[in-house]
Design a protein around this nucleic acid. Structure first.
Length: 464
RNA sequence: GCGCCCUUCGUCUAUCGGUUAGGACGCUAGGUUUUCAUCCUGGAAAGAGGGGUUCGACUCCCCUAGGGCGUACCA
């Protein structure tokens, strides 16, 4: 095992955001590719928003996506004492200072700065003051350098430089003594031994600011990789109005986790011209330098196509397991043993007709449903006195058939010839009689699978 | 406002100075076919704009435009 350690650090917002899921996937792929560790940390310091259910939702999403993590997840909130300790160390070694400015003073400063067209970065008067200070609440601020520049070497963004005058003295510890996100992230990443920070590029500026904390503590910087965000189909930031935001929504729509991983990985990362690949291949191929810098738009059509390809490529027994998981997650009636057997025997012909699990189940209606199979609106057009008569004659012939695929096909083709009909003219009413629908797998395949008794019974239902 | 990032077919992308700019999704014209799919064959479709550098730029540099992110005692 290498020393690579990556982490995924979501806030428990109630669901696993699809964009976060991709970030998690990249961290997971990199760790697995390197033979390192992939850790999970829940950023639950905002207690107003915290709930155990929200944390569970993150785990659920991760499990569904098949992103397994190493070691126990870390609760950021549980580490507040450690964060405060680091803040005080920073205070002691002069890398931070106590700031007694009130919110009102800060607001006034910003308003004035804006009016004077100066940067609204707050310049605390306490930065260079004596530590002999009033006995009132204070915040701990980082004493950020005001001269020179800070450069972040990023595996995706390249070398990015900021003038230090554009970086502020950010707050490390709030006036109530709790740590801010900026401090907590740095301390946790360091303590967890994180070697590679792979996260959304909305954090790029934060990397520069956070690097100053590392410097203040004399810690080594992790390797950064800021990946571009995912946008909606219209190019705008992915939001509620684009629909499906959480990975649970994709599970509910019946996409295969493998397809999801494939699609998400391909959004912003490439391996030559490969579009369709297994998770194992993605793990083998993954590298940070093949991640692009521009944001990608979410394309449902492509996801759907990939989902269909994965369904077709999945082993039948495995696919049945996916169906059962889906059925359970949607609280649908459990499959019976007969259903399972029918799925296995008919899978080859139904799986090439479906792009999602619900579609798969819809096509399986011919054995999931129960007799009698009443024709739906479209199918009804195929049932009339003429077709019923034809079907009756066919039924009598079928009673003497031994029901092998070859014989069935031969008999029905011969029957069509005798009736002076094209095969389709026989097959379509037959399909309707057997399934009540105009769309289904091959009638020959279905008949063999359903068995003679069942088919004859359905034909008799239809003749009434 | 300031800072940083981005810009190849409608979409995801390949290309790492020299290609008829390739693939995939989608679209489209056919073929296979008992329906629907699958599958097969073909087609339309791109370097944001303007300057440089160079024998030669999609590729390197600058400017413009457009988009994104950041600029909190949120994370």
């Amino acid at each position: 095992m290498s020393n690579v350690v990556t982490r995924f650090a979501p806030s428990p917002t109630g669901f696993l955001h699809i964009g976060s899921a991709r970030t998690a996937l990249f961290n997971w792929l990199f760790a697995r590719n390197q033979g390192g560790k992939f850790l999970l940390r829940i950023e639950d310091t905002d207690r107003k928003r915290y709930s155990p259910e929200a944390v569970e939702a993150i785990y659920d999403g991760m499990r569904w996506l098949g992103l397994d993590w190493d070691e126990e997840p870390i609760s950021q909130f549980s580490r507040v004492d450690r964060h405060a300790k680091v803040a005080h160390e920073l205070l002691t070694n002069g890398a931070a200072y106590k700031c007694y400015s009130t919110k009102e003073e800060i607001d006034a400063f910003r308003t004035a700065a804006r009016a004077a067209k100066r940067p609204p970065l707050f310049r605390s008067p306490w930065r260079d003051a004596d530590s002999t200070a009033p006995d009132v609440p204070y915040v701990v601020r980082l004493k950020a350098p005001r001269e020179g520049e800070t450069t972040i070497i990023d595996q995706v963004q390249g070398s990015v430089t900021w003038k230090n005058e554009t970086l502020d003295d950010m707050i490390l510890l709030r006036s109530d003594g709790t740590p801010t996100y900026m401090l907590a992230v740095v301390v946790d990443d360091h303590d967890m031994g994180v070697t590679h920070v792979i996260r959304g590029d909305d954090h790029l500026t934060n990397a520069a600011r956070q690097s100053l904390i590392y410097k203040g503590m004399g810690w080594d910087l992790p390797i950064y990789a800021h990946i571009p965000l995912i946008h909606g189909p219209d190019g705008a930031k992915l939001s509620k109005r684009h629909g499906a935001l959480g990975v649970d929504a994709y599970r509910d729509m019946g996409y295969l986790p493998a397809a999801m991983r494939n699609y998400l990985a391909r959004l912003g990362w490439s391996h030559g011209d490969d579009d369709f690949f297994t998770t194992q291949q993605a793990v083998e191929w993954f590298s940070l330098d093949k991640i692009g810098k521009s944001p990608a738009r979410f394309d449902f059509k492509k996801l759907e196509n990939l989902s269909g390809q994965h369904i077709r490529a999945t082993d039948n027994v495995e696919l049945l397991q996916e169906i059962e998981k889906f059925v359970a997650s949607q609280h649908l009636p459990e499959l019976t043993q007969r259903h399972r057997e029918m799925f296995i025997s008919g899978m080859d012909s139904i799986k090439e007709r479906a792009k999602t699990l619900p579609e798969l189940m819809d096509i399986a209606y011919y054995f999931l449903g129960e007799r009698p199979f009443k024709p739906d609106a479209k199918a009804g057009h195929f049932m009339n006195t003429v077709s019923r008569g034809m079907l009756n004659r066919l039924t009598s012939r079928l009673r003497t058939v031994t029901w092998s695929l070859e014989e069935l096909e031969a008999v029905i083709r011969d029957f069509a010839e005798v009736e002076d009909l094209k095969l389709g003219k026989v097959a379509q009413p037959l399909r309707v009689a057997l399934t009540g629908r105009t769309v289904s797998p091959s009638v020959f395949d279905m008949m063999v699978q359903l068995g003679k008794d069942e088919c004859i019974a359905r034909l008799e239902d239809a003749s009434r």
